[in-house]
Amino acid sequence: MNEVAQISEFGKILIFLITGIILLCLIFFLNRLLAPNNPTAEKLTSYECGEEPTGNAWLPFNSRFYVIALVFLLFDVEMVFIFPWATVFGNHEIIAADPRWGWFALIEMFVFLGILIMGLVYVWRKGDLDWIKPKPTIPTTNSRVPAALYDKINIQQNAFKIKEFALESVTTDMAAPVAAATPDAPPVRKPMFKPTFKKPANDA
């Protein structure tokens, strides 16, 4: 009589996750307990491959780095999909029950890899993986407005000249109306008290 398993496959996965979390928390606790805590200015600086960091860490990165990250992510996810296929293809019990499962899994995985490789070749041939494109494409539009009209507008805008800022003329022009507008203004009153400062007494 076959014994019934007391724990299912999902229960094993749950025990594995709980054990991993407990071990991770234990390692962090031991690290905090045993590791010396002596922060210095040099330790708190950002690590740049062993070189002295210069400037601010918040810098704009080139957008081409994101293309490399997306390609890496694509093939990283591909490996996640290959793992279940490998388990089915390498299971002798499934293949012994029905040999068609092995061939079906093999063909399906080749189709999946072929689609990804075709996409990679397409992007490669298009030049999107190059760091600097050798032949930049000039954008075109189907606008009905002739290019001569844009040139005419640019010439008209360049014809207008902005006056240069002169501080002396502005101050003199603004001071004259103020003086003329207030001829009967009362004189500025002087303060009623005069501050006095005590001189230090000479020791001699």
Rank of each mutant, 00 (worst) to 15 (best):
G127P: 00
V88G: 02
E168T: 11
S63M: 05
K126V: 01
N31V: 10
P134L: 02
E42N: 14
T196I: 07
F160G: 01
H92L: 04
V123K: 02
F160R: 11
C25D: 04
N31W: 13
R125L: 06
T87N: 14
K133N: 06
Y122P: 00
F112S: 05
E3T: 14
P187I: 01
A147N: 09
D184I: 00
T19G: 12
I22H: 04
W58E: 14
G90C: 15
K163I: 02
T172Y: 02
I27S: 05
K199P: 03
F89V: 08
L149H: 15
T140K: 14
D173L: 03
L33T: 08
Y150P: 00
K198C: 01
P39T: 07
R125G: 13
A57L: 08
V145G: 01
R125E: 08
R144Y: 11
K194F: 00
W58P: 00
P191W: 00
P187Y: 04
N31G: 10
P186V: 01
K161W: 01
L17E: 08
T171R: 09
E48I: 06
F65H: 08
K152F: 15
D184Y: 02
F28E: 13
W124K: 03
A57R: 12
E3W: 07
V80P: 00
R100H: 07
M192N: 01
D203E: 06
I94Y: 12
G50P: 04
L59H: 04
T140D: 07
V71P: 00
A159P: 00
I155S: 13
D173W: 02
T137Q: 01
V188I: 12
A69I: 01
A148Q: 14
T196R: 02
P186D: 03
N31R: 09
R189Q: 01
L24R: 15
T45E: 15
A69W: 00
I15H: 12
W124L: 03
F89H: 15
E51D: 11
Q156V: 14
A86F: 13
F29H: 07
